[in-house]
């Protein structure tokens, strides 16, 4: 008898849950599922997208915009299962926020023609495979790197720079190439040292790489991915400048983080949502660049102003008034 009662209770609870899911949705509600390879608080790639979704939710209102997420989906097969599952639950947009998810997406998308998928960072929407419901997005990180590099060159005294990257591929490689080009545009004779940590998460090694860069004379550092928090700590401790990427990193070292390239994912998500509402399911590649505001250089006044004043005081910068 007890068993029977328990089963009834369970069944009731489940049906309430299912019903609330099935019929609770209003016609206006736009539902997004977001799958990412690292954690929502990685202070880099995933966190920036998570914050973009929060921003959109704030603007559109919780009653009109709802999103769910699966974090730490670094195992591609798990991510694929999540993508398929969310699609089958009728989400309007499923964001596969990792370049490694592409192959799974091209398998899954044709089975769910009513769902839109977004994949980044890439410039491939699989139109060659006849797929129509995948959007792609790609930040031109080299542009952000270039601006950071040009700024870095203006601020560096030693003309030696250090880059701390994860693996020499993808976004990190492009950002680094841009950073180098930016420096060279100002100071062609610059010395730019690059280290690759071989991992996105080895904070301790990133920290030692920063130490080695500073020992080698670098007074401006930059880098990408979540492990750079180790390097920012060293920049703070040893008083060198840092240029950030993905999110505004100035909170970690207000005196040292001069500028961060903030990726404004909302710039692509908003038109994407509009298109989906109009019935277009995919096929478009969005780029995030400086021109469309997808990349924003967040200058941290505290560090930049502080550094400028310090340079004037120390006589590194001579302010001349021309007549």
């Amino acid at each position: 008898m007890m068993e029977m009662k328990r089963i009834i209770v369970i069944l009731t609870l489940i049906s309430i849950f299912v019903l609330s899911f099935g019929f609770g949705a209003s016609a206006e509600l736009f539902r997004v599922a977001f799958i990412m390879p690292s954690a929502i608080n990685d202070f880099a790639w995933s966190q920036s997208m998570y914050e973009a979704l929060l921003t959109i939710q704030k603007e559109m209102g919780k009653e009109n915009f709802e999103f769910v997420y699966s974090e730490n989906m670094f195992v591609v097969a798990d991510a694929a299962a999540a993508i398929r599952d969310y699609a089958s639950e009728g989400y309007d947009l499923v964001i596969a926020h990792g370049s490694q998810y592409g192959a799974s997406l091209s398998d899954i998308a044709p089975d769910f023609l009513d769902t839109s998928f977004a994949w980044g960072s890439t410039a491939n929407v699989f139109t060659d495979l006849g797929i129509t419901n995948i959007f792609a997005y790609e930040p031109l990180s080299e542009q952000g790197g270039y601006v950071n590099g040009a700024l870095a060159a203006k601020l560096s005294k030693n003309n030696i720079y250090g880059v701390i990257g994860p693996i020499e591929t993808g976004d990190a490689k492009r950002y680094t190439e841009g950073f180098k080009a930016g420096i060279k545009s100002v100071k062609p004779d610059a010395k730019i040292n690059v280290t690759w940590i071989g991992s996105y998460s080895d904070v301790a090694l990133a920290s030692e790489a920063a130490q080695a860069h500073i020992d080698a004379g670098a007074d401006v550092l930059t880098g990408t991915s979540q492990m750079t928090i180790g390097a920012i700590g060293v920049a703070k401790q040893r008083g060198v400048l840092w240029f950030g990427y993905d999110v505004d990193q100035s909170a970690l070292a207000p005196q040292n983080v001069v500028a961060s390239v903030d990726v404004i994912w909302a710039i692509t998500l908003k038109p994407m949502i509009e298109m989906i509402r109009k019935g277009e399911r995919g096929g478009k590649i969005f780029t995030l660049n400086l021109a469309n505001g997808g990349l924003k250089i967040v200058v941290n006044d505290e560090a930049l102003v502080g550094k400028t004043i310090e340079d004037i005081v120390k006589g590194n910068i001579e302010v001349k008034v021309e007549e």
Binding site: P37, F74, V75, V76, Q100, A103, I167, G198, Y200, S201
Partner: peptide
């Protein structure tokens, strides 16, 4: 059987799932 290609996220576990 599953991936039909090889990829990396830097660590081994991205492929192996531990």
């Amino acid at each position: 059987g599953v991936h039909h290609r090889l990829f990396t996220d830097g660590s081994v576990s991205g492929f192996t799932g531990s």
